[in-house]
Design a binder for these strands. Structure first.
Lengths: 244, 244
DNA sequence: GGCGGTAATTTGGAGCTCCAACTTTAGGCC
DNA sequence: GGCCTAAAGTTGGAGCTCCAAATTACCGCC
């Protein structure tokens, strides 16, 4: 479910419905997507909306179009490997005026143990006050802070983690019948009142692995989801700017 | 210049022309882009093509649309901080079958001194046999190689570089009147014969800083450009999949 | 059964139009 | 000069249509 209100553009309704089917597996990799003509009938929309929906899904990398044949769910949707993606769709320094410290992009992070606040606990689907790791990042470009991020993970997931722990986690996820993990990344713009991007509603049975609050030095909202399929862990990246 | 042939879709002609003006500075940040109506007249195209061109440029992050007002060159186009972006638009492991080494995304790299081959020298605009640094990367997701990259940089640009050297480089670039650096990233797909993505033609007067050859474990072509403006160094990311 | 040619689908480019919501401008009034 | 209103312009959603190129399906023929 993508939390698309009925007042939203109709093409987004189509996008959300197809995306849901891809994410929850009703439309497995390789499965054909209804053609333009079929979509207009199925959803009762015009061809413009149907085309636009397909274009958006293709831009997101969830489907591919083959001329003369049709659209198909990608063999593997663009699931991006986790943990290296905090920079994805980053943007340019803005209004920062710290003394330049060089010409390189640098980043600092500090992990520290913490207890899950009710808010975080709910998103991570942990008990309240459960041990979590809080990681604070400062990303700099040419010395200017580009991005400030605070990330929360269940304890035992941090950077210096043994293979044992990792395997245990995977087992924990599989054994619990958890299929997919989604992460809601709240993106704040640079305007005084932080405006949150639309949060993705969580499908039933998923497990949130990682919550990230990011203060961007920019203004281009992005939605990302961290997805866990037992044995695989990836991040799915949506970009609002793909939609218009 | 974007190497858009006359046989290409007309909307790409418009995109290429406007993008060129943004990149070379004719259209400075904040400058208004001609409206839909004006574009149809100026380029002699239909409104569909004009709209599509604006949408592509907006998806690339080069311009923003404001309802009721117009499209404007972004205050700072989405120039992404350099050197942390080798993962951008990465994709999922494919067909790799090395023993799993854990659940994390890891990466190894090794920098080594080398001499510029004619090929590399030409792209980096160095003399033949000039000292360069070759960096080989192996990115792994869950132990499976996701991306193999070989990157070439002028010597003295490598990871462990003193602030002195960095400043010297910036000076070198500024004093030479070099304005923008573009990097051509050649993306190979997983099919036997690597099919290169369209290379961006290099504008006159630019300086190539960094050449990267990437073997992806996927099939979604991406174009990236590393851009140097004296004092700033960013990477501009295009994605083919934004266009359709 | 196998082959070949034709017809039906499907994508992606391109054109046109209408409209709601919003911004900007211009003009008129006090 | 300052304020308010109305008109004009612009974006983004949505509709429809036509067409070229490519793929797929089918049917008849050998």
């Amino acid at each position: 479910m993508d939390h698309v209100a009925s007042s939203d553009p109709v093409y987004l309704r189509v996008v959300a419905d197809i995306r849901r089917q891809i994410v929850d597996g009703s439309l497995p990799p390789g499965a054909p997507i209804p053609s333009r003509a079929q979509l207009t009938r199925k959803y009762g929309v015009g061809e413009t909306a149907a085309r636009h929906a397909l274009r958006v899904l293709a831009a997101e990398g969830l489907i591919v179009g083959r001329v003369g044949s049709g659209h198909y769910v990608r063999a593997r949707p663009v699931l991006l490997p986790l943990y290296r993606w905090r920079f994805h769709d980053n943007r340019v320094p803005f209004g920062a005026d710290l003394p330049s410290q060089g010409a390189r992009t640098t980043w600092d992070w500090r992990a520290e143990p913490a207890e899950a606040t009710p808010d975080i606990a709910q998103r991570l689907r942990l008990k309240e006050s459960a041990p979590v790791t809080r990681i604070r990042y400062v990303f700099r470009g040419d010395g200017k802070p580009v991005q400030l991020a605070t990330s929360y993970e269940p304890a035992g997931l941090g950077e210096p983690v043994s293979d044992e722990t990792q395997r245990a986690l995977i087992n924990r996820i599989s054994s619990a019948g958890m299929k997919i993990t989604e992460v809601v990344e709240e993106v704040y713009t640079r305007v005084p009142q932080p405006s949150e991007s639309d949060a993705l509603a969580l499908p039933a049975g998923v497990h949130v692995l990682h919550v990230e609050r990011t203060h961007w030095a920019g203004d281009r909202p992005v939605e990302t989801s961290d997805i866990v399929i037992p044995g695989d862990r990836f991040r799915l990246v949506y970009s609002h700017s793909l939609h218009p």
